[in-house]
């Protein structure tokens, strides 16, 4: 063993290395041959000898690779030093990878989950009419609910949609009355920005309309979608909530995906997090889209993709999402 080590130490060139490899480690090398000889030993000694052989082989291999690496590094350094065509003072070209926005990652995930469950994924406009955003979802003029959302109005009378619900009407008309669809999108509200509020944010709305779609179905679908999104079993809880386009309306809570409902800082130790709103679609919304509420019924739900992204990627300031800060964006992994 010591002899072999000494031999390895004295090697100076790649050629000598190859010679060493041939002599000891190759198929016909001395070490490999020793292995073949093991089978001639009596059975009682074979196990012990095999163990010793393996230890020896590993030790020599390890020394060999170490020596090989150091020789190669030495060769490269010499080339760098002596080759007139190489200037080591020039900065390296950074190999960067691009990135997709966290909202894109999340939206894709939600779309994949929902489309596999039979939901159509619909893309909608950001500029919509007053009718689509308000009247068609049962928020008539003078309704206090119009106060709940400060709207960016355009001088042409249209507006930047304040809620993805603005698409309900169009989808019901185009694909209804029996339809399952989700429609993620960017929404705008005229409010001050801070670490947890942005005047533009992403929501994902969904609905399912059919002949017997019930609250029990709503709970089932929410539980399934949310469990898929978070990659663990999520319990859902409905509380009374008021949204003009549904009746009855619910606030939707999910068991905290970060602690499993035991209580942590994300859920403020309650075990539950508010995820969005939902309810049975109001008969006025159906009627306005020419769907007969005597025959068809269904549910709608909406949750904040921006909020979800902040939770999923542990983003503590919502403003980062629209900052164009590449260092931040590249740091987000799917």
């Amino acid at each position: 063993m010591n002899d072999i080590e000494k031999e390895l130490e004295q090697i100076q060139t790649e050629a000598e290395m190859a010679e060493f490899h041939k002599n000891y480690l190759s198929k016909t090398g001395k070490l490999t041959m020793m292995m073949a000889g093991l089978k001639d030993l009596p059975a009682s000694e074979r196990a012990e000898a095999g163990k010793r052989y393996n230890e020896l082989k590993r030790a020599i291999e390890s020394q060999f690779f170490k020596k090989q690496a150091s020789l190669r590094a030495k060769a490269v350094n010499e080339k760098l030093k002596n080759d007139p065509l190489i200037d080591i003072t020039i900065p390296a070209i950074k190999k960067t990878q691009g990135s997709l926005h966290p909202i894109t990652h999340l939206t894709r995930r939600v779309a994949e989950i929902c489309s596999s469950m039979g939901f159509l994924v619909v893309d909608g406009n950001e500029v919509v009419t007053e009718f689509e955003n308000f009247d068609a979802v049962n928020i008539p003029a003078d309704h206090p609910a119009r106060d709940m959302q400060d709207t960016f109005w355009l001088t042409n009378g249209k507006l930047l949609k304040t809620q993805t619900s603005a698409l309900q009407h169009e989808i019901l008309k185009k694909h209804g009355p029996v339809v399952s669809a989700i429609f993620p999108g960017r929404c705008y509200r005229n409010e001050a920005t801070d670490a947890s509020h942005e005047f533009s944010f992403f929501q994902c709305e969904g609905m399912m309309v059919g002949e017997n779609i019930s609250i029990a179905n709503l709970i089932y679908v929410m539980k399934t979608i949310l469990s898929q999104i978070f990659g663990r079993e999520i319990e859902v809880r409905l509380r009374p909530g008021f949204f003009p386009f549904v009746e009855p309306g619910f606030e939707l809570d999910g068991s905290c995906p970060f602690c499993g409902g035991k209580g942590c800082s994300v859920c403020k130790h309650s075990g539950w997090i508010e995820l969005g709103g939902c309810g049975m679609i109001h008969e006025n919304v159906l009627k306005m889209a020419d769907v007969n509420p005597e025959q068809y019924q269904g549910f709608a739900f909406g949750f904040g993709l921006t909020r979800l992204a902040m939770m999923q990627y542990a983003i503590n300031d919502v403003r980062l999402l629209n900052s164009g800060n590449l260092e931040f964006l590249r740091g987000i992994k799917r």
Binding site: G118, M208, I219, R237, L238, R239, P248
Partner: peptide, 30 residues
């Protein structure tokens, strides 16, 4: 639906068992 809400909220939302919808479910291509 408003009257149904009065009944179901007093029945207790937590007492509703989740039920899979009886609709045909097939993946929808993008």
């Amino acid at each position: 639906a408003d009257v149904v809400e009065e009944i179901i909220r007093n029945y207790g939302y937590q007492n509703i068992q989740p039920v899979a919808p009886l609709v045909e479910i097939a993946p929808v291509p993008f």
